[in-house]
Design a protein around this nucleic acid. Sequence first.
DNA 1: TATGATTTAATCGTACACGATATAAATACA
DNA 2: TGTATTTATATCGTGTACGATTAAATCATA
Lengths: 150, 150
Amino acid sequence: MMNDFLSLDKQLCFAVYETAGEFNKLYTSALKPFKLTYPQYLVLLALWENDQVTMKQLGERVNLGTGTLNPMISRMQEKGWVRKERSTEDERKVYVALEEKAFEEKSSITKRVAEEIQLCNISMNEYGELMERLNELHKKMKQRSKSIDA
Amino acid sequence: MMNDFLSLDKQLCFAVYETAGEFNKLYTSALKPFKLTYPQYLVLLALWENDQVTMKQLGERVNLGTGTLNPMISRMQEKGWVRKERSTEDERKVYVALEEKAFEEKSSITKRVAEEIQLCNISMNEYGELMERLNELHKKMKQRSKSIDA
DNA sequence: TATGATTTAATCGTACACGATATAAATACA
DNA sequence: TGTATTTATATCGTGTACGATTAAATCATA
C-alpha cells in the first residue's frame, strides 16, 4: 500500500514536471515571433484581465515572488510591453500598467497561441477534465503549504 | 467556440504552471534536510531505477538537455551523490554512476518525501486519474513537438 | 510625536532550463 | 587513407525561480 503510493507519487511528479516542460516549449515556440517568454505571456494574460495593479498583487495572481517578478517586469518594460509607475499616495507601491503595444498585439498573440495549441488535437472534454483535477490537486497542495507556514 | 477554447487554454496553462510550482515547493521542503533540489531528486529517482547510464540516456529519461544536466550532475558529484566516468571504449561517452551515499540514503529520502505528500490528503484514485490524463496530454504535446522538428 | 513594527519593492546568491555554439571522438565512404 | 558527417559532451548567454536580506515608506501606539 505504502509502496503503491510511492510509485504513483514518483510517476505523478514526473508527469507534472514533464507536462509543464512541454507547455513551456509549446508556448515558447508560439511566442517567439513576439519576443515574449512563456512566463511573460502569463503576466500579460493577467494584466489583460486587470491592468494597473501593484507588483504585490500581480505576484499573487501569477504566483511569483518579487525576486522573480521584478527583473521580469523590468525586461518587459525595456521591450515596451508595460511600464512601472510609483504611486504618489503610497510611495512603497509600484503600479504596473500595460503599454499601447500590449493592447495592440493582444489579438495576434492569442490567435497565434491558439493555433499552436490546436495542433495538439486536444478535445474540449479532455481539457476541462484535466483542469478540474489539476485544480483539485493544486488546492490541496496550497492548503498544505499554508498550514506549514502557520 | 474559439473563445471557449482560448479561455480553457488560458486556465489550463495557468493550472499546469502553478501545480508544477507547488510540487516544486513541496519537494523542496521535503528534500531540504538532504541538501537536494527537486530536479536533483528526479535524477536520483531515474538512477535508482537504472544506474550506469550515459549523460544522453539520462537526459532523455528526465527530459533535460545537456545545458541543464551537465552542471547539475557536476554539483551532485561535488556533494557525493554520483560520479562521472568517461568510457574508455568510446571516449565521447560519460557514464553516470551512483555513489554509496545515494544507495544508503535512498530509503530515508523516499520515506521523508512520502510523509510530506501524504499531508496533502490525496487519494490513490485522484492520483491515478490525474496522472492518466496528464500522460494523455503529455503524449499529444510530444507528438506535436516531434512533428515540428521533422 | 517619536519609535518600533509592518508593508512593499528591490537586490543578492544559488540553481535550474533552454537554444546555440564549440570541441573532440567516432564513423562513413569516396 | 583522408576528409566529411555524425555523435556526445561541455560551455555560454539569457531568462526564470526562490529564499534571504536590505531599504524605504507607512502605520500603530505609547
